[in-house]
Design a protein around this nucleic acid. Structure first.
Length: 476
DNA sequence: TGCCATTTCGA
DNA sequence: CGAAATGGC
């Protein structure tokens, strides 16, 4: 393709300069570029929560300044209907080409398909690029050309597929002299209450922060990733999830950087399989677009949930009386993130101990996570619920006390997020109700007053959950 | 990336 | 008698 008419490059998720196929392709063509971001958060069913919006605000600022610094190119910000904005821009700039990075959520696919049809009618050429995945969801198929429904075969297959090389950073490109009326602050305003300041100390949204996180992780944590990654009291996970969600780093960059680092191969593979879980989630969401709302295994629609707004709220607020659960839920609220092991434990607790629908947990995570991602969130909640593709078996019910003792052995994680019981000695920190009266008094804990009694008893809850499952279980 | 009751093993 | 293995949920 040769063109001298401007190319509009619409960035949606992949807010980075390096290894960005859409930017690379556009810059290579030698035409002037119009770089835009359109905020249409209010026009779809899964509006982003405030934590995620804070991250987006910061990420866009970072991207905007990187573009200005490296290429003296402005990032134009718009708010409203992408179709109308693109039509107008094409007219005003005489652009005949619109390039974008592919998105995979059902509502973005629908939106983009409509836009592509309308603009094509007006002789605008649309070109889209895979910027967010190792492989497109339709590139991974089993021997019968069907999507994978089990992770292990998906992962084995992925390891056999060629992964493209990292793209070089475009040396230069010309940008059209053009400006928009809105700024990042107009379209994605920060909340008036500065609750995000606590999060701002922990994270560095943007490409530089992502790169730093990856380098630090590969150097300091990957060597014993297999075992230490389960410890929420240590910082041994990559913490790349929000960076990946906004595309500040690509899975291709992670793939190659991991394979060329010093850590043992078994550790590399373990970490890359986690990246592959993300890939598998996108694969499932693409092929089964109902994933965010309906159980993948249809018989789960009859599950006898016992909906309770009170229980849901106690879980959300970290007031369940189980220290590891409350620590996790409070970490989420305060940092916009939760350790993966703890995510599994709190999700299992909401679904199995409290019998609340997994969709309620999914919504809460969606509203509060900085890494809120439709594919990962939906696939993971269904995985824990047992209703998903390749789900955990329903009888896998975590015991919150044992999980705490096993993965937070010194209680540092609980002490950090549940300070009101921090003075309890270790055998009782994960099960305060077992502590003798004098030990509770000495630690300044009054159960039911300064810290809740358990809102449900573990053994009974476990039996009730197994019984509930029996009512829907399919007999083969 | 489960829990738990029960059985079996070995000092 | 405690650790390890086993098997059902």
């Amino acid at each position: 393709m040769t063109t001298k008419s401007p190319i509009i490059v619409w960035f949606r998720q992949n807010l980075r300069l390096h290894d960005n196929p859409v930017l690379h392709a556009a810059a290579t063509l030698g035409a002037p570029l119009v770089l835009i971001y359109i905020d249409d958060n209010t026009s779809h069913p899964w509006q982003a929560g405030e934590a995620s919006r804070w991250w987006l605000h910061e990420s866009l600022l970072s991207f905007e300044s990187a573009l200005a610094k490296k290429y003296q190119a402005p990032l134009l910000i718009y708010q409203g209907s992408p179709l109308i904005i693109l039509q107008t821009l094409c007219q005003q700039t005489q652009a005949e080409h619109v390039f974008w990075d592919r998105c995979y959520e059902p509502y973005t696919i629908k939106r983009d398909t409509e836009i592509k049809a309308m603009l094509t009618k007006q002789n605008i050429t649309i070109k889209s690029f895979n910027c967010a995945l190792l492989k497109e969801p339709w590139e991974s198929l089993n021997k019968t050309k069907q999507p994978f429904k089990v992770f292990t075969p998906f992962w084995r297959n992925l390891q056999k597929l060629p992964i493209r090389d990292i793209l070089p950073l475009p040396k230069k490109f010309e940008s059209l002299s053009y400006s928009s009326d809105s700024t990042i602050a107009d379209c994605i305003p920060l909340p008036t209450i500065h609750w995000y300041e606590e999060m701002a100390k922990l994270w560095q949204p943007g490409e530089t922060g992502a790169k730093n996180h990856l380098a630090h992780f590969l150097k300091n944590a990957l060597n014993d990733y297999k075992t230490q990654r389960n410890r929420p009291d240590l910082k041994q996970t990559s913490r790349l999830s929000p960076h990946l969600h906004f595309g500040e780093i690509s899975p291709v960059q992670i793939w190659h950087a991991t394979q060329s680092c010093q850590a043992p191969q078994s550790e590399q593979t373990c970490f890359l399989s986690e990246i592959a879980w993300r890939e598998f989630s996108y694969h499932l969401l693409y092929h089964f677009p109902d994933l965010p709302s309906s159980p993948f295994k249809a018989y789960f629609k009859d599950f006898p949930w016992k909906k309770s707004k009170t229980l849901l709220k106690q879980w959300q607020q970290g007031q369940t009386g189980y220290p590891i659960i409350d620590a996790g839920m409070r970490e989420l609220w305060h940092t916009g993130w939760m350790h993966n092991r703890v995510r599994m434990v709190v999700a299992s607790f909401l679904i199995k101990h409290l019998l609340q629908p997994w969709q309620e947990g999914e919504k809460w995570f969606w509203d509060t996570l900085v890494d809120a991602d439709l594919a990962n969130n939906a696939a993971s909640w269904q995985w824990v619920a047992g209703s998903g593709a390749d789900a955990a078996p329903y009888f896998r019910i975590f015991n919150p006390v044992l999980q705490g003792e096993k993965f937070d052995p010194n209680g540092d994680y609980v002490k950090k997020w549940v300070p009101e019981i921090a003075k309890l000695p270790i055998p009782y920190l994960h099960a305060p109700w077992d502590a003798p009266e004098d030990i509770l008094t000495k630690a300044g804990v009054q159960l039911g007053k300064t810290y809740p009694l358990p809102i449900i008893e573990h053994t009974k809850a476990r039996e009730r959950a197994l019984a509930a499952y029996q009512t829907i279980k399919q007999t083969p």
